Simulated scan of single mutants.
Amino acid sequence: MPGMSQARAVKLEADILGENKRIARHNRQHFEAHGVTALNLVSSPGSGKTTLLCATIEALKARAPRLAVSVIEGDQQTSFDADRIRATGAPAIQINTGKGCHLDAPMVAEAFARLHDHDHHHDHRDHHDARSLLFIENVGNLVCPALWDLGEDAKVAILSVTEGEDKPLKYPDMFAAATLMLLNKTDLLPHLHFDVQRCIEAARRVNPAIEVIQLSATTGEGMGAWLQWLEQRMAAPA
């Protein structure tokens, strides 16, 4: 900013991130108290996040009909994606960030409270201590969301095969922060020059522990592995 010293700018950034971490800790405690497994879905624009999310919700309805699933949807403008999610029957709260390139913990806290206010979410500890799922679909951006803890259980990075296989090396902070990489749109591989193994190796160069699932939300290939990962994540101790 004009007229602001570098030291002042660094202090402001530290203060903002510090306050975000405090609220993220509160979110994490709140989610756990309500039996919620919260996942932060991150990707670049056009990776197929919303299509995958809709397909996941529909598949979970068939696989685990008693499981409660809700969504916090982040976009700079419009409510198109939230409308698509609501069409599946899952409650969705839209957050429009305007010029903002990421969600932050206060936004998520306010949206989660609105889920309660609208009776979209309940304390599922009443049902044999079953957990529920909260998907947080972040703004399409592989840079800024890497820095911001929302209180999630894990970050899930979605990478489409229509993107470059070197994306993990170009945006290492995001893939280093992710627990899982979903390699999406694999049905398009016969039409593309995309080296799957090279992409996986790139992701594991920046994050040796990252898990990888290849899938297609369109054909359903690999969805079983993704649903199994979700079940294991919900069953894991907090």
Rank of each mutant, 00 (worst) to 15 (best):
D15C: 04
A24F: 01
P91E: 07
I23K: 01
S47A: 15
L147C: 03
G224D: 15
C101E: 05
C101H: 11
F175M: 06
H191Q: 13
Q214P: 02
P172N: 10
A225G: 06
A154D: 12
D126W: 00
T50E: 00
R125V: 03
D153T: 15
V212I: 15
R114T: 14
I16F: 09
V69W: 04
R204D: 04
A62H: 15
A238Q: 05
T162A: 11
G164Y: 07
L17F: 12
A90V: 09
D15L: 14
G140K: 00
H26L: 11
E201V: 13
I158K: 01
V36E: 00
V71K: 08
Q232A: 08
V108S: 01
H121C: 02
L142R: 05
G3S: 09
T97E: 00
Q29K: 14
D129T: 04
L53R: 02
Q29Y: 06
W148I: 07
L17D: 10
T162R: 07
V196H: 04
G18W: 03
L180S: 07
V139K: 02
G222V: 07
L150K: 07
A111K: 03
A130R: 11
T97Y: 04
Q76D: 00
L147A: 14
T162W: 01
H191E: 13
E137Y: 02
F175N: 04
H128T: 07
Q29E: 14
R84M: 09
L103D: 06
A217S: 14
Q232R: 15
S160L: 05
D129E: 09
S5H: 10
L188S: 12
V42P: 00
V212T: 15
V196G: 02
L103G: 02
P172H: 06
H128Q: 08
A225W: 02
V206E: 07
V42C: 11
H128K: 06
V206D: 04
A176L: 03
V196D: 01
R25K: 13
L215W: 01
R114A: 12
E110A: 14
I23H: 00
F175W: 08
S70I: 06
W229V: 12
H34N: 13
I85S: 03
A157E: 11
T56I: 09
Q94W: 08
D166R: 14
V156F: 04
L159S: 07
E110M: 07
K11V: 14
W148M: 09
H124W: 06
